[in-house]
Design a binder for these strands. Structure first.
Length: 249
DNA sequence: TCACCTCTCACTTTTGAAAGGG
DNA sequence: ACCCTTTCAAAAGTGAGAGGTG
């Protein structure tokens, strides 16, 4: 009962690869207190057509790797359950039916991958640049989710020299209960909005003043949605490899 | 009608190339 | 030539809310 959520540890070994089983790899969620603040209210993550970063973002530290072996570290999103949700008249979340069919599964590879164990263990690392989208036709390699559905991030540590050989590498998987969230296209709970504005520096422009003027609309600058970090991943998918199927049956 | 979703806004932070110094 | 620091403009990231959609 007194377990430490920051060190939730759910290792899995690949089938028939027990001989490759490594020592105790441990992953720790770095900004767990912030995550818990959100979790206690009911974390919501904005998803948009063009992709939105998470806030809080996932930042972890790791130990127990072999210093000179190379590792690829990846992240994906797992549905919490098979329901979709809505906010009722009392401003509470409730089940609103069965989940939509799962969108195409995407995996985000940490941009440092592959790197030796010593690199990963040197200091914590984040998945800041990963983006979430509700666009099932997304061409940028963002992680595709359904709005009003619940998910949690999952991290995979794979011993591999290249993104193209992760299929054969031993791997372990980690997740953290306090990182569960509901995907939304607009915040539903004002408390979540306030927490985000208080902690996310990019929201500062909306924090002070109230100078927000909708009357003077300028033409929108063209957005550049280019995620270099996803290129490797995208190429891998292009070559016919479905990460979900091969790595995590 | 209604519940979500999309677009656009103003402002802040981040990024990264160029310049400067040692 | 090389490395590090500083500068600074451009790019990117934010939540709100009007309007759109089915």
């Amino acid at each position: 009962a007194a377990c430490d959520n920051r060190r939730t540890h759910m290792p899995r070994s690949p089938p028939a690869a027990d001989s490759y089983q490594q020592g105790c790899i441990r992953m720790t969620l770095e900004n767990a207190d912030l995550w818990k603040s959100f979790h206690s209210i009911g974390t919501e993550m904005i998803i948009t057509k063009h992709g939105r970063r998470m806030f809080p973002h996932c930042s972890v530290s790791i130990s127990g790797l072999q210093p000179f072996a190379n590792y690829v570290i990846m992240m994906d999103m797992v549905p919490v359950d098979s329901f979709k949700y809505k906010v009722n008249a009392y401003e509470q979340w409730e089940v609103a039916g069965k989940a939509e069919p799962q969108p195409p599964c995407r995996t985000y590879m940490h941009p440092d991958s592959p790197a030796p164990g010593s690199h990963w263990m040197k200091q914590s690392f984040s998945f800041l640049k990963m983006k979430l989208t509700n666009n099932t036709l997304d061409q940028h390699g963002h992680i595709i989710l359904h709005s009003m559905h619940r998910y949690y991030p999952r991290f995979h540590v794979i011993q591999a020299d290249s993104p193209y050989t992760v299929r054969w590498g031993p791997f372990q998987t980690f997740s953290f209960p306090e990182t569960t969230f509901t995907a939304v296209t607009a915040y539903q709970n004002p408390k979540i909005t306030k927490l985000k504005i208080d902690h996310n520096p990019f929201a500062k422009g909306f924090r002070e003043g109230g100078t927000h003027a909708h009357s003077k609309r300028k033409s929108l600058k063209p957005h550049r949605h280019w995620c270099e970090n996803c290129i490797n991943l995208y190429n891998v998918q292009f070559m016919g490899v479905t990460w979900k199927t091969i790595l995590f049956p």
